[in-house]
Amino acid sequence: MSKVAELEEALARIADNQTIMIGGFLGTGTPEGLIDGLLEKGVKNLTLIANDTSFVDKGVGRLVVSRQLKRVMVSHIGTNKETGRQMNAEELEVELVPQGTLAERIRCGGAGLGGVLTPTGVGTIVEVGKEKITKEGKTYLLELPLKADIALIKAWKADTYGNLVYRRSARNFNPLMAMAAAFVIVEAEEIVAAGALDPDEIMTPGAVVDMIIKG
């Protein structure tokens, strides 16, 4: 079976008010074709889970500028002035999450875990409202899993079943997000026949991928 589809079929799965995870680190490893599609479709009030809000003209930063987001959960907004402006004007809710904690919360969401204990953030404002647990003399914060309705993933190579290979620093959050959403859409630079990738080189198993478009 082939999961390869057209951009329109992918966009048909995305609706107002959904929570969407989008891969990428300052735009590297972000599916720009799918972002183009979201801009054109004009879906609104999205909650975005991503590493950062990128730049005003790159990656998920473009969705901030187009005002399609009501809330973002990210580790960094400093490279996108529009995020800060909308946050200060109370037009956009921003929850800042330490980067490693964000990665683990997404991993938990995709791995069936109820949470993770991390030392990161202890003694800072990140601990506010969170359960603190001390084990063997060390204090941790209980951080809870994150899941999404949709994950938008950027792969270097995909086979028609959805097995994925990422390239260099474009991997970042993509494999974690591909595990943590109800519907997973991949934009791949190259699509090959199932069987063409060595099973040992595959970084995300195709079983968790729902749809593939050509990037």
Binding site: D52, V74, S75, H76, I77, G78, T79, G84, M87, L96, P98, Q99, G100, T101, T118, P119, T120, G121, V122, T124, V126
Partner: peptide
Amino acid sequence: KMVPGMGGAMDLVAG
């Protein structure tokens, strides 16, 4: 004034 976010800094310093 300046709220860029912690990025990876909190994890780096803790770890």
